[in-house]
Design a protein around this nucleic acid. Sequence first.
DNA 1: CCAGTAACTTACTGACCAGTCATTAAGCAA
DNA 2: TTGCTTAATGACTGGTCAGTAAGTTACTGG
Lengths: 217, 217
Amino acid sequence: MSEVVEPRWRRLPEERPKQILDAALTVFAECGLTDARLDDIAKRAGLSKGTIYLYFPNKEELFREVIRTSVIAFIARAEAYFEMERDGALALRGWIKGYWSWLKSPVFPVMHRLISTELRNFPDLVAFYATEVIERAQRLVHDMLERGMDSGAFRRMDPAVASRMLSATLVSHAIWYHQRVSFKSIKNIPEDELVSQITDFFFNAMRPDNTNATTHE
Amino acid sequence: MSEVVEPRWRRLPEERPKQILDAALTVFAECGLTDARLDDIAKRAGLSKGTIYLYFPNKEELFREVIRTSVIAFIARAEAYFEMERDGALALRGWIKGYWSWLKSPVFPVMHRLISTELRNFPDLVAFYATEVIERAQRLVHDMLERGMDSGAFRRMDPAVASRMLSATLVSHAIWYHQRVSFKSIKNIPEDELVSQITDFFFNAMRPDNTNATTHE
DNA sequence: CCAGTAACTTACTGACCAGTCATTAAGCAA
DNA sequence: TTGCTTAATGACTGGTCAGTAAGTTACTGG
């Protein structure tokens, strides 16, 4: 019998880390850090648990690495959205689109859970996230808003506050979107519609006053 | 030696459930369902773990009860805010204040975590929360907005969308507020200021157009 | 074709913790 | 004071799972 017997497993040391990180991201996204089982991650990656320990020292470090690589991937993508659109309002529309694509990715719920619940256990990741994502993003939006205000496209207000309001709206909607099966008010609204509702609302909040300078008081 | 010896423990069957629920709320709020330890809850309540099982059948049921009682307490409080303020805009300001007081309470992060992560394990609580809080609240806000639109205080738009935008902004800010130590952009802003920033922004988004009916296009 | 070794698996260990139950003690009534 | 009821305790059990280590299989170079 000269059958070609498939080996039970292959040696693929180059590809393992990525396979494990991908699987881990999925499982962490679904379960969170504590409820995620290394056996499940291994199974999903088509490996045994022991293999994970060849590439990562422990569960927590695997978690860290999942976050780090995912965030880095996002930043790289986001920066592509920013090749000098000088018009503040247009740049902002581009930003919203790009930001949403991150928010709707499976990485975001993981990040969000981290931020809103498991934060105190990972101060290093918090610092990393704060400087590498939040501050960077806020500076960008801040600048776009100021440009828009200067050009008269937006009314004058504190750009830091405005940018926070935009984030707030997007972030909540993203959370609901990820859970949309359970949310009547979101369930049947297509994604594009949702984003344009948010955009419209924000631009309305920022639209300049058309009154003829009635400085009452 | 006729010292008055304090008994090692007292029999207080009436008060135990509340003591346990209070302690559980705190610990669940900090750790989430999985990471919360019954021993910790017991310790915080000044009891032993066994005692918890005299009043609640298991951890999950205790969790359910924490949520139920807390949500009910909130609803009761919230309804007090609503004794027929007929003016839409004023009613809305009242609503925001009341809603915020719920959002900043320790129950909200628990609820939020439940919604955003542990949802699938508690369909009954989700349904309960959806009907008893979300829908009810949305209907109220919806009505207030419509009244405000009718009176000309607000511009015309879909009240469902507007109410969702308001919730979104408030909810995100609440999450950040609970984690404010880690959030530079929020840390030094007093609570009142935060709420009024949100309110102002929302009212600006809803302010009617002052253009003299320039129906271009 | 046959070591030798690197990649991977599997069976195990020890810590942890929800839930149990035998025991102890508070309080009450006679 | 005694004896009964029941609130409360805390040591224990059984299951779960992160992490380990010994064993197995794929591959490589001679």
